[in-house]
Simulated scan of single mutants.
Amino acid sequence: MEMSDRRMEANKELSISQVAKYTGLSPHALRFYEREGLLLSAQVMRGDRGHRRYSQSDVEWLDICIKLRASGMPLAQIKRFAELVRRGQGNEQQRLEILREHQRRVVAQMDQLKDCLDLINWKVGVYEEHLKQGTAQHLWTGSDSDDAPSDA
């Protein structure tokens, strides 16, 4: 669900199943995030019957956590970042350092992936050309033969 759809319910408390639907995380993963201290509140709110109730800010924070995790940030760093945010003002420089370190890692990963994509694009071109020319049977087959083309 889009963020704008979630904002319509900004003042409404959400159930774990609603948050799971919005974030794409399973209820099990949401409970895990809570146990690991990855959420901004020390404890998730509870309804009259003891069921978890999430606020709009909880969902927005989870969106951040999901993106950080998807980009490869270790859970320990997300937890450290969340701890610093929970503490409030005065540690912004530490938070920035965590984000900058992760930013450097992501940029390095993107550079590496760009190199991989360049190779893949080249190989696709080689195969397309050989198939077009009817010479695909001469592409490398994994044998140690001396006649294996270097562009396979």
Rank of each mutant, 00 (worst) to 15 (best):
residue 13 E to V: 13
residue 114 K to S: 04
residue 8 M to L: 14
residue 3 M to K: 11
residue 115 D to P: 00
residue 1 M to A: 10
residue 138 H to C: 06
residue 88 G to K: 06
residue 140 W to S: 14
residue 40 L to R: 00
residue 85 V to E: 14
residue 140 W to R: 15
residue 97 E to C: 14
residue 133 Q to R: 15
residue 30 L to N: 03
residue 54 Y to V: 09
residue 3 M to C: 06
residue 125 G to T: 04
residue 74 P to K: 00
residue 152 A to H: 07
residue 41 S to V: 12
residue 52 R to D: 07
residue 75 L to D: 01
residue 68 L to R: 03
residue 134 G to K: 14
residue 13 E to Q: 11
residue 39 L to D: 10
residue 92 E to C: 07
residue 113 L to H: 10
residue 33 Y to K: 00
residue 86 R to A: 04
residue 36 E to Q: 08
residue 53 R to N: 01
residue 116 C to P: 00
residue 40 L to M: 03
residue 10 A to K: 01
residue 134 G to D: 04
residue 16 I to Y: 08
residue 51 H to Y: 13
residue 146 D to V: 10
residue 21 K to C: 03
residue 141 T to V: 06
residue 78 I to W: 05
residue 98 I to L: 15
residue 32 F to H: 13
residue 91 N to V: 11
residue 82 A to Y: 08
residue 94 Q to R: 10
residue 37 G to N: 06
residue 91 N to P: 03
residue 68 L to Y: 08
residue 104 R to M: 04
residue 82 A to T: 04
residue 31 R to S: 09
residue 77 Q to P: 01
residue 14 L to A: 04
residue 151 D to G: 01
residue 145 S to M: 04
residue 21 K to T: 08
residue 46 R to H: 04
residue 125 G to N: 11
residue 60 E to I: 15
residue 78 I to L: 07
residue 77 Q to I: 05
residue 121 N to S: 11
residue 31 R to T: 10
residue 99 L to C: 10
residue 92 E to P: 10
residue 143 S to R: 12
residue 26 S to L: 03
residue 87 R to F: 00
residue 17 S to D: 14
residue 55 S to I: 06
residue 26 S to C: 08
residue 61 W to V: 07
residue 48 D to K: 02
residue 150 S to L: 13
residue 10 A to V: 10
residue 108 A to W: 08
residue 95 R to T: 07
residue 100 R to Q: 14
residue 38 L to T: 01
residue 33 Y to A: 03
residue 144 D to K: 15
residue 85 V to F: 07
residue 139 L to G: 05
residue 80 R to P: 10
residue 83 E to D: 15
residue 114 K to Y: 00
residue 109 Q to H: 13
residue 42 A to R: 02
residue 37 G to L: 02
residue 120 I to H: 08
residue 128 E to K: 06
residue 1 M to Y: 05
residue 129 E to S: 11
residue 115 D to W: 01
residue 117 L to M: 14
residue 73 M to W: 05
residue 139 L to K: 09
residue 102 H to I: 05
residue 19 V to N: 12
residue 93 Q to R: 15
residue 135 T to N: 04
residue 106 V to W: 07
residue 102 H to V: 07
residue 23 T to W: 03
residue 126 V to C: 06
residue 24 G to S: 02
residue 41 S to Q: 13
residue 5 D to Y: 06
residue 110 M to N: 13
residue 88 G to L: 04
residue 5 D to R: 00
residue 94 Q to A: 15
residue 129 E to A: 12
residue 35 R to T: 05
residue 100 R to V: 10
residue 27 P to I: 08
residue 65 C to P: 07
residue 56 Q to W: 13
residue 34 E to Y: 05
residue 26 S to D: 13
residue 19 V to W: 10
residue 139 L to Y: 11
residue 139 L to M: 11
residue 111 D to Y: 01
residue 70 A to N: 11
residue 149 P to F: 09
residue 122 W to S: 09
residue 138 H to L: 14
residue 72 G to T: 09
residue 133 Q to T: 13
residue 64 I to P: 05
residue 49 R to Q: 01
residue 128 E to V: 00
residue 88 G to N: 09
residue 12 K to R: 11
residue 46 R to A: 11
residue 74 P to D: 00
residue 87 R to A: 07
residue 148 A to C: 08
residue 80 R to H: 14
